[in-house]
């Protein structure tokens, strides 16, 4: 078929809009695609309007406007993949820094404390950012809570190594929070979603036991 006229193009555009596509970029892409199809695949005798209507029906198994949602999902998925790669590489880097710092500390080389603090700091900040990012999708306070508590405990350990003040307090917050805040919330969520079983029940019990036993080992007078 010959090139479409301006009024034909306008008719196709209106049809796309009638199907609920509001994303301008998607409207333009689909419009050009449909015009190309009509111009290249339709014989001169064919009813081009019927052809376009049929092609639009074939574009999505449910309805054309679902393409917009799928586009957003694609973007989100690809962004998440990129984010996971960055988080994983940064965490590996922080672990490498931490190990380097420990080696420096063992050999009493200068700069050990700085490297350890840097490694721990990067790891904690990355974990927190990752937790906040995931929380948007999971809509769960559980994940962010355990990350905060773990961050508190690991920073407490770091403070302890460095002989800085408030080390015990930070560790205590991590331990007590895990045993008396995270475990009950997590168990409640698992119970209400019917996902509580012997395996995760035992895991939570062990976590509670570890938390309370570590708490009992603390000398509160040292705080």
């Amino acid at each position: 078929m010959a090139m479409l006229h301006e009024k034909d193009i306008h008719w196709i555009k209106q049809l796309i809009l009638e199907h609920g596509i509001t994303d301008q970029a998607l409207v333009e892409s689909l419009l050009d695609h449909l015009c190309c199809m009509v111009e290249n695949e339709l014989t001169t005798s064919g009813d081009w309007q019927l052809f376009v209507e049929n092609e639009i029906k074939k574009m999505h198994p449910i309805a054309l406007h679902h393409l917009q949602t799928e586009k957003e999902i694609f973007i989100q998925q690809l962004k998440n993949n990129n984010m996971n790669k960055i988080v994983s590489n940064t965490l590996m880097g922080s672990v490498a820094l931490l190990l380097t710092g420990v080696i420096f500390k063992i050999f009493h080389w200068p700069g050990a404390s700085f490297i350890i603090v840097l490694g721990c700091g990067i790891g904690t900040v990355t974990s927190l950012i990752s937790a906040l990012h995931h929380n948007k999708e999971m809509q769960s306070v559980k994940f962010i809570l355990i990350t905060l508590l773990a961050a508190s405990f690991s920073m407490g350990c770091l403070f302890k190594i460095q002989h800085w003040p408030f080390a015990n307090l930070l560790m205590l917050v991590g331990v007590l929070g895990t045993a008396f805040l995270f475990v009950p919330i997590s168990l409640y969520q698992l119970k209400s979603s019917n996902q509580l079983n012997a395996q995760n029940g035992l895991m939570h019990f062990l976590l509670f036991l570890t938390g309370t036993m570590t708490f009992m080992l603390f000398d509160l007078s040292m705080m």
Binding site: L26, S29, L31, H33, L67, F74, I75, Q77, N82
Partner: peptide, 28 residues
């Protein structure tokens, strides 16, 4: 088309592809 354009637009949003717009009469 239902699979192609959402993916192309997503790749554009993430910076893997870039676009050049050419006007062909009333369409882009």
């Amino acid at each position: 088309e239902g699979a192609l354009y959402p993916m192309l637009h997503a790749l554009e949003a993430l910076g893997d592809v870039t676009t050049e717009t050419v006007y062909i009469g009333k369409r882009v």
